[in-house]
Structure formats: C-alpha cells, structure tokens
Design a protein around this nucleic acid. Structure first.
Lengths: 172, 172
DNA sequence: GAAGTCATGTAAACGGTTACATGATTTT
DNA sequence: AAAATCATGTAACCGTTTACATGACTTC
C-alpha cells in the first residue's frame, strides 16, 4: 500500500501513543499544522485504509462507551514509519503565497515590494510569537526530541524571515 | 469570477509582458516554482477561464504560425492584479515534509533528529546554491524589483535554515 | 532524417478542504 | 435545560499532478 505524507503524520502520532482520530486531529492542530495540516476528511478515511492494510489496529474503547475507537501501530506499521524516517529525503515543495506578492510587487503601480515585505514580516512575527508561547508550555512539560527541535527551528526560521523582511522594507 | 493564487501567477507573469502558455510555464519553472509551481494541466484551462472572464486577451501569433497564442492583460485584468497585490495578506499555509521527519524522529529507534536535520541541511544548501546561480545571471541582466527581492530572500532563508540545521545536527 | 524543442491541450487520479450530519457526554 | 465538547463519519468540491496525445518547426 502506497503511503503519503499524511499517512505518516498519522503513523507518527500513533508512534507517540495510542489515540483516536479526534485526538490525532487535536494534536496535529497544535503541533505539525505549522508545516503540515490534516482535516477530518483525511484522517478518518486514512485510519480506515491504514487499518485495512494492517499498519494500525483499532478497538472500541469500552471504558468511555462514547463511540471512541483507539488505534495503535502494529509491528508492521512501526516498521513502515521507521523506514520512512530513515529514507533519503523526498522532494520538498513549498507553497508560500506571500512570496508571490513580493515577487510580483512592482508590476502594478504600487511602488515596489515594501508593502508585501511588511505584510510578510507581520505574519512571521505573529507565528514566531505563537510558537514561543508553545515553547513555554513545552519547557514546563520538560519535552524533548524531534518535536522540540522542530519547534525551535520554527521559531528561529520565523524570526529570521520577519527580521529580514523588516530590514529590507526599511531600506526599500 | 473567483481567482486563486495560480490565477494571479498567470496574471502576474502577463504583467511583465505578453506571453503564451508555454512561456508562462518556462518562466514559472525558473522563478516562482521555488515557492509556487504550476503545471500545464492548470495553466491552459486557467488561460481559457481568464480569457472568458475578460481579464486577459489572446490572439494567434501570425508571425510564427506555430499555433502559438499570445495573451496579454486587459485593463480589467491589470486592475484585478493590482487589487490583489494591495490586499491585506491572505492565509499562508506551508507544507514541508522534511519538518515532519524532524518532528517524528526519535519515535523509532533511529536515535534522534540528527539524520533528518542533515538531510534538511543538504536540501536547503542545494537550493541556496542554485538560487545563487540564478542571482549571477540576474545581476548580469541588471534585474531589479520584486523578482530580485524574492530571490535574495530565498537565498537568505535557505542559507539560514541550512546553517541552523548544520549547527543543531552537530550538537545533537 | 532523427532528435529536440515549441506549442496546445485533455483525462484520470490524487490530495485536501469545507460543510454537513449525527449523537453521546460533560459542563455551566 | 442549554451550551460546549467529544467523537465519528461522508459528500461535494476544488486544486494539482501525471501521463498522454498531437503536430509543427528547428537543429544536428
């Protein structure tokens, strides 16, 4: 069975601990969503597919009796996740609409990239601030490893771009 | 008529000069594709839509007689482009699969984020190098404005991330 | 005359978002 | 009793990629 990045988001989350689809969505929304989002419309059908393929295994939670189905990785699922993590890097594509505005600014009579740079600066500033907030709670929870590295990289990157745009806007 | 980011890529390119679909594809492939790609499967149908909506106007090129259809912005098309450039920033979403690997590294028995960081470093290094090559030709052509700003931002950003990953990998 | 480039286009499939539908449980 | 949250799921739609089909013109 072919897996895509979103499949690995699910496998990866289940690698932390067993979870239901709702939990995965909540977790994604406060972690990977800054570089990879996922909607219910992807998560639930994908849980089904992964389960059919034997990479995860779900069972109805009898404790809560609220229709909750908890999934966990099977050994095969864990192997696939590990393989992917060890694989040579796949093609990376980026989509950043704010770069388009920088690129095309000046086409029209709006006097160069300054406005686009300021808007981009503000956006990255805000994201950096939000990530710094998350970092606080992560520190409190004494978290470590990949998630914290990703968080620190996100903060550094957003602050760098905000700063670059600010300086460039000032001199433009 | 509703326009999306790809529509504006086309309008933006036609803002530089009149072009055919093939030209747009070539140009995108060596400029915006680092932050926004476009395929023929999007470009040709979209040229049709934009033309039907009166935002661009095409005419068969009688000089070459090779089936080439050259499009240019109509005044209305230019107005829409300018509006978009002046608009408050739209939602920005990023998708970066290499961040997923950083985030999930350590889940499996692969010993932390070092390998993922090194792969990411190499990728951004390569992109930075390619962009620096483009910068050379841009300098030679004495280019300026939005495209050059976008290019310099791309170089700065890729070098920064490569550097950050390198340092982090070394200390991890 | 073969290979490469210029040029237009379409069909199928994939990936993803949005909006909706349903209902149980928990909190106010 | 009402509102919020937990929890699952689907259907319609949009955006994008990939692969294919076609043919003229140019270069070697």
């Amino acid at each position: 069975m072919e897996l895509n990045a979103t499949s690995y988001v699910i496998l990866g989350m289940l690698g932390f601990r067993p979870m239901c689809g709702y939990d995965i969505k909540q977790l994604v929304d406060k972690s990977t969503r800054f570089f990879w989002a996922a909607s219910y419309g992807q998560i639930y059908p994908e849980l089904r597919r992964l389960s059919d393929a034997g990479l995860i295994k779900g069972q109805a939670d009898s404790d809560t009796a609220r229709g909750r189905i908890e999934f966990e990785l099977t050994p095969e699922g864990r192997r696939r996740l590990e393989d992917w993590l060890g694989d040579p890097p796949e093609i990376q594509e980026m989509r950043d609409e704010s770069m388009l505005k920088v690129f095309f600014s000046g086409t029209a009579g709006n006097g160069g990239p300054r406005a686009a740079l300021e808007a981009k600066r503000d956006h990255h500033s805000e994201v950096a601030a939000r990530l710094r907030g998350i970092e606080e709670s992560a520190k409190a929870a004494d978290a470590s490893g990949g998630p914290v590295t990703a968080l620190r990289l996100g903060i550094a990157f957003n602050e760098f771009v905000a700063d670059w745009c600010d300086k460039e806007a000032a001199s433009a």
